[in-house]
């Protein structure tokens, strides 16, 4: 359990995000957001409640909501389209999630564990999803026939008449230079750092991968130079 001062700091971090004033303009307590919210139909979750807690600066209950509730939001932004005050409860939730990660909250770590595969793919390749991730054994509840033609995945992908899509491990072919540029973005924006806070093992795997790709790129550049010299 956090101290009051820690909870206050968490709230200050939420309030300090420059999007906060965009996303919270007052609240009628009308509940339109909750009425239209898909997650409110399935979870003990209400965007109206989140907005009210923030609006009334209830730091203890804000902290409480960050343990589980904020992770129920589906981020559809239906609430934002409908709120008469032009609030974005979904946008506020996004800020709260970022702050939960920054403060290394256990709730964030628990929630993110099953998301590791997507994260690994994204950070290392610049793609979030790939054909080899959508195989039947990963999604048993999708049933035995998630495709209409059986066959080798590689061959089926080659039968897509677009060159960039004939891949298995990424959704499309991403050039090496592009991936390396992406790593610079992750580093310079602190994304790798927040990953390290969340899941050290995943971070180590990603770091090794990045080093390897960077080396590949350096080698490639050298080869190009040599070719040019010849």
């Amino acid at each position: 359990m956090a101290t009051y001062a820690e909870m206050q700091q968490i709230f200050d971090d939420i309030r300090g995000d420059f999007r906060y004033d965009h996303d919270l303009n007052g609240c009628l307590n009308c509940g339109i957001c909750t009425a239209t919210c898909p997650s409110a139909q399935f979870y003990d979750y209400s965007p109206r409640e989140i907005v009210q807690l923030l609006w009334t600066e209830n730091v203890e209950q804000i902290y409480d909501a960050m343990q589980e509730k904020i992770w129920a939001c589906a981020q559809c932004m239906t609430c934002a389209a409908r709120c008469p005050f032009k609030n974005s409860p979904g946008g506020l939730v996004a800020i709260m999630r970022e702050v939960a990660i920054k403060h290394e909250m256990q709730s964030a770590k628990d929630v993110l564990r099953p998301f590791g595969r997507v994260m690994l793919k994204l950070i290392t390749t610049g793609n979030q999803l790939s054909p080899d991730m959508i195989q039947p054994d990963h999604f048993p509840d999708w049933g035995p026939n998630i495709q209409k033609v059986e066959g080798d995945l590689q061959v089926l992908r080659k039968a897509i008449p677009v060159k960039t899509l004939q891949t298995v491990e990424t959704a499309w072919e991403v050039s090496l230079k592009t991936s390396v540029e992406m790593y610079t973005i992750w580093e310079m924006t602190g994304v790798l750092k927040s990953l390290e806070l969340m899941d050290e093992n995943l971070f180590d795997v990603i770091e090794d991968f990045i080093d390897e790709k960077r080396e590949d790129y350096e080698d490639w550049l050298e080869e190009q130079e040599e070719e040019d010299d010849e």
Binding site: Q75, A94, L112, V118
Partner: peptide, 17 residues
């Protein structure tokens, strides 16, 4: 081939980013 995902799926899903 010189393009990446927008990375927003990951952001909206995990808050990382």
């Amino acid at each position: 081939t010189d393009q990446t995902s927008c990375t927003a799926w990951n952001y909206h899903g995990s808050g990382i980013g």
